[in-house]
Design a binder for these strands. Structure first.
Lengths: 257, 257
DNA sequence: AAGTGGTCTAGACCACCTG
DNA sequence: AGGTGGTCTAGACCACTTA
């Protein structure tokens, strides 16, 4: 290790990472380009392979590159955001008969696919119970768990929770809930959606989520806890959306009251 | 390594990580608790220290633990979300004379501090120019860059962009923009905020952001690109908020139109 | 001084992918 | 078959924290 001057007090792995980062930002390594192999980097910088590997890990952690086993390390493609507008709940958009996801996909020229992972009856977790205003801790809910794909790429996982006494024996218990999806059925039950409340957070995925969403390391998820309020401002539906953050943007446009 | 059955085809590092994850989820290792040292884990599982280290890296990547140099590895404290309601732009909240951030901090019983990182004149980037409806690529904007703290902990970095011809020579060029902050001055200029548009995304921080926000590895950021629209639905202010995701939740409540 | 994590070396074998 | 990343070993020294 030369470390000839005060030039770099930094660890070698960081210097290698910095050099690569600069090359990426300058466009010398453009999106999709392959980085030199770990062994090549190690030799170039006179370091052990593990040190070059650590440099690549730093870049992956920043979301700049992704490693493909057996192929190489590649500069990540720029984000193509799949936007979910706040008007996805809008009544006028439901006149098409499409569910919000299918409508958004169609707008963007993508094919939509929805896998039903399960429809079960269960005791809700405290955060769900609170938002559905369920106070009796014996009361159960219906949990509909779905997996959404756009152009066959996984985009989001959604868990929807409804009161058991309302859903019991209706199409709300079936994979295909009929025209306009579950909101159509809920409207027939007397719940007109008049306001929505979305609570948004971001975090790293659990291993389970990483698997379901096909997430490479270093990609966070956006979590939206959504509550629908009816004409009496009573909650009648709560959903938890988990989106892969590198393909999702959320857009909210609202009046200042 | 016993590997007595098909019990675990997984790498040793993942098995160690899984064991620790289970202990955390069961509460055997509660929030703030110290994990066994890397050397202790290595011995316990009959692995090299680097392997135990890799296990801890996996947990850190999932946001479960944080390493403190020279002290140990600790289970991360649960998130204390600092909520920014959609009503933070609300007119009625401005009657206090407080800026939105100071108001929100006060509500939560925290002290607010705002560092001004710079107020400069510059040519806007394309995404800012587009949202401010600036089409002449010579036209400049004022860029106010601030750093916000709650209880002296960094919470967000905010860049606010205003038209140069409106801000020039006014309090909008000063660190202290006067009563009600910049929105007070903009209202005097004839811009009544009637709608807002927030575009939300999440990603891993740049090294610069990690430094400014004091982010441990494995914590993503929430980015909000905010546009204020006036009574003519013309944009008059654009801001880019960068929040640390482990302390920030966003709440939007809006009517379904 | 002792213990902790941070970095690094110089190997090794395995799993995956491409020619 | 040969190259790539994925995992692992058994050491070493450094930087930081605590007692």
């Amino acid at each position: 290790m030369t470390r000839s001057e005060a030039f770099s007090q930094q660890p070698a792995s960081r210097r290698i990472a910095q050099a690569l980062r600069t090359a990426i930002e300058r466009g010398e390594l453009s999106a999709g380009a392959k980085l030199p192999s770990e062994r090549a980097l190690a030799e170039e910088y006179g370091a052990a392979r593990n040190t070059a590997r650590e440099a690549i890990r730093l870049l992956a952690e920043q979301g700049l590159v992704t490693a493909k086993h057996g192929r190489g390390v590649f500069v990540r493609e720029p984000q193509r955001l799949f936007r979910f507008g706040s008007d996805r709940y809008s009544l006028k958009n439901r006149e098409t008969g499409l569910t919000p996801f299918r409508l958004e996909a169609k707008r963007q020229g993508k094919t939509a696919r929805i896998d039903v992972l399960g429809i079960t009856r269960e005791v809700p977790s405290p955060d769900i119970a609170e938002r559905l205003k369920i106070r009796d801790d014996q009361e159960t809910v219906v949990h509909r768990k779905n997996h959404y794909f756009a152009d066959d790429e996984p985009v989001q996982i959604v868990s929807t929770y409804l009161r058991w006494d309302e859903a019991q024996g209706t199409l709300l218990m079936q994979p295909k809930a009929g025209p306009h999806g579950i909101y159509g059925r809920l409207e027939e039950l007397g719940h007109v959606m008049t306001r929505v409340r979305d609570e948004i957070s971001a975090r790293m995925p659990t291993p389970e989520e990483a698997r379901l969403l096909g997430l490479p390391p270093g990609v966070p998820v956006l979590e939206v806890l959504h509550t629908s309020l009816d004409q009496d401002l009573e909650p009648f539906e709560v959903s938890r959306y988990v989106h892969r953050a590198d393909r999702t943007g959320l857009l909210y446009e609202l009046p200042v009251e």
